[in-house]
Simulated scan of single mutants.
Amino acid sequence: MSSLAEKGLKISKNAIFSVFITRASKLLGRPFQIAIILKEVAEKLADKKSSKGAFGQLIDLGLTLVRLVQAYVTGAYRQVETSTIVSGVAVLLYVLSPLDLVPDFIPVVGVMDDFALISWFITKFQAEIARFQEWEKTSASAASGVAPAPAVSDKSQPAVAELGHS
């Protein structure tokens, strides 16, 4: 069976997802609408946060995506390609949309395509997400006046294999 990231790659190439990419590129200049989307996606992911294991890690990374887009839109973090942010917003729109390949109202299976697309995004943009997570740690330490913790190898970012296979 293929991994979640491979399934997400297939979804990312689907015509339905291209609609979300177009919508995301139009929304990028509208911070208030992006803020509403970020809040709704964070709430949706938080509802599923009770999940353990690989899906819990994937939800945490989905919330990292929400924070990345939020930091970009507010101007706090711009060390990321605009195309990455457009793809990230498209993923968030897809997660939020009731009109995706597998409707969310179908128990368990309904969120699998959402998780697959998040997994694809995390896999494709893993280096940019790792840089953002490091920036978050550094800026949080700077804001608190505490010296940043020593850098840890990529153990803070789950390996793709840890994200699970379906």
Rank of each mutant, 00 (worst) to 15 (best):
V86F: 08
T84Y: 00
Q133N: 12
R78T: 11
S83M: 03
V108Y: 14
D114G: 06
V108R: 15
A90I: 07
G110K: 06
I129W: 00
A76P: 02
V73N: 02
Y77D: 07
G110N: 04
S83D: 02
V80D: 00
Y72P: 08
F125M: 04
S83T: 10
E81G: 10
Y77F: 15
T84L: 00
D100M: 07
F115P: 01
D113Y: 01
L99H: 12
Q126S: 14
V89Y: 07
W120C: 05
Q70C: 05
E134R: 13
A116C: 14
S87Y: 14
F125A: 08
L117N: 01
V95Y: 03
P103W: 07
E134C: 05
E81V: 02
L101G: 10
V73K: 05
L96E: 13
I118F: 02
T123V: 13
V86E: 09
E134A: 12
T74Q: 14
R131T: 03
F125P: 00
E136R: 13
T74L: 09
A127G: 05
W135S: 04
G75Y: 11
I106T: 03
F105P: 02
I85C: 03
G110Y: 03
S97L: 06
T74S: 15
R131S: 10
T82Q: 15
T138R: 13
D100T: 13
P103E: 06
P103A: 14
Y72K: 13
I85W: 01
F132V: 11
V86H: 12
K137F: 04
V89F: 04
F115Y: 15
F132S: 09
L92N: 13
A116I: 07
F121P: 02
F105W: 15
F105S: 10
V80K: 00
T123M: 05
Y77H: 05
G75E: 11
Q70W: 06
Y77T: 09
V108E: 13
S83F: 00
E136K: 14
V69M: 13
V91I: 09
D114F: 02
V95N: 08
L101P: 01
V80W: 00
R131F: 02
L93G: 12
T82N: 08
T74V: 08
Q126D: 12
I85M: 03
V66S: 00
Q70D: 14
I129T: 08
D100V: 11
L101V: 11
A90N: 04
R78M: 08
G75P: 04
S87I: 06
F125E: 10
T84V: 14
Q133K: 14
D114W: 10
V111A: 03
V109H: 03
S119A: 15
L117G: 01
L96G: 06
Q70S: 15
F105I: 12
L117I: 11
